[in-house]
Simulated scan of single mutants.
Amino acid sequence: MFGLFKKKTEKEQLEAQYAKLLKEAHSLSTVDRKQSDQKTWEADQVLKQIEALPQS
């Protein structure tokens, strides 16, 4: 109950964004390959940001 108002860390936010982008890329892969590639590239950029974060 007390974790209800806990804010997500920057790493958790980036991981959620990464997962969302990969899911979008997968769904677009059957419809529009160019947009799917764009989403995959965006997800890769987010992954690089996650890796650049200091380890805790």
Rank of each mutant, 00 (worst) to 15 (best):
Q38L: 12
A19C: 04
A52V: 05
K11H: 03
T9H: 05
A43T: 03
Q55C: 07
R33Q: 12
Y18F: 14
K7C: 06
M1H: 02
E51A: 10
L28D: 00
E12V: 09
I50K: 05
A16H: 07
Q35F: 14
I50Y: 01
R33E: 14
A43M: 02
Q38T: 12
Q35V: 14
D44I: 04
K39C: 00
K48T: 07
D37T: 06
W41M: 08
E24Y: 04
L53M: 15
E15W: 06
S29M: 10
Q13I: 08
P54F: 14
L14Q: 00
K23S: 09
K34L: 04
Y18I: 00
L4K: 11
Q38C: 00
Q38F: 05
E42Q: 14
S29H: 02
K7H: 12
W41L: 12
E24A: 04
E10H: 10
L4D: 03
K34A: 11
Q55Y: 06
D44Y: 07
E12G: 06
K34Q: 15
Q49Y: 11
Q35R: 15
A25E: 09
Y18A: 06
Q13Y: 06
D37W: 10
R33G: 01
S36D: 01
S29V: 01
I50C: 02
D44T: 06
Q55R: 14
A52T: 10
A16T: 14
K6W: 00
E15P: 06
W41D: 09
R33I: 13
T9R: 02
F2M: 04
A16F: 09
Q13C: 09
K20N: 15
K8W: 08
K8E: 15
Q17H: 08
Y18T: 05
D32C: 07
K6T: 00
R33D: 10
A16W: 08
K23M: 05
